[in-house]
Design a protein around this nucleic acid. Structure first.
Lengths: 129, 129
DNA sequence: CCACACTATGTGCAAATTGTCAATAGTCAA
DNA sequence: TTGACTATTGACAATTTGCACATAGTGTGG
């Protein structure tokens, strides 16, 4: 997992991805309440497929600890053990809004680096000294 | 440092920032060889000001361990103890190029989340259920 | 009934990353 | 000779992340 390319990639999903787990979960819950398992599956749409389920469940419980979401046991009978339904709270809604500001800032940061890189590549023809 | 906003921010610089430390250092070295201390100062231009020096020096030594940079002691007499000069290697140059691809992917990920959020906000008028 | 596959969640611990503190060491100016 | 500033490093603590596995219900085929 070290050096030469393997450093950033792990199970087809970038290692940095987990940093976007919380805002993505909040967004999915902004659409409406959902089960952990469902959220887990829908993460794939946001490039977060392949995360270990434990990581996702843990994130949800942590978010509940912070009061961003609440959970209740689903009474509906399904093909398996009881499931938790997570609901976004007003606090979680605020957190999501703060997260989007943070993401925009991150985006600007990335743009700045990429911009500087491409400008420098054009000028210097890719040379480094 | 936990909950409510303090979670992402630390010394005026986002906690995720350190993830962009390596590509930024590589970019700065792409401009030309430089001392660790100089790099440390120039990081501010990329929103990475306020990082603890140890973190930066460590990153440089790790990168040297991976063969991305080499270092030599500066013979020039300056106002202080001897300084290391870091030079980008061919391998480091490749690493930088891989990093930019990674950053572009991260950018797409962020855009996807932000896009989904703003679309959903327009439709639903900011309601969450 | 029993083995098995699939759904669903959770625990504990190891490994990796990140943050802090303090040590070392040279130069310069008062 | 003290203190401020330049420069780099080491050791250790705290936090985050990944993984292996435990638990548990449901449905299917033999």
């Amino acid at each position: 997992m070290r050096g030469q390319g393997g450093r950033w990639r792990w199970r087809g999903c970038s290692r940095r991805a987990v940093r976007f787990l919380e805002p993505t979960l909040l967004l999915l819950l902004h659409y409406g309440p959902a089960h952990g398992y469902t959220l887990l599956e829908r993460l794939g749409e946001f490039g977060l497929g392949g995360l270990n389920p434990s990581v996702v469940y843990r994130a949800l419980r942590d978010m509940e600890g912070r009061g961003w979401v609440t959970s209740t046991w689903d009474t509906e009978q399904t093909q398996g053990p009881p499931r938790r339904v997570y609901h976004l709270t007003a606090l979680g809604n605020e957190a999501l809004s703060l997260w989007t500001q943070d993401l925009q800032e991150t985006r600007r940061l990335i743009d700045h680096v990429l911009g500087a890189y491409s400008r420098h590549m054009e000028e210097g023809k890719g040379e480094y000294h």
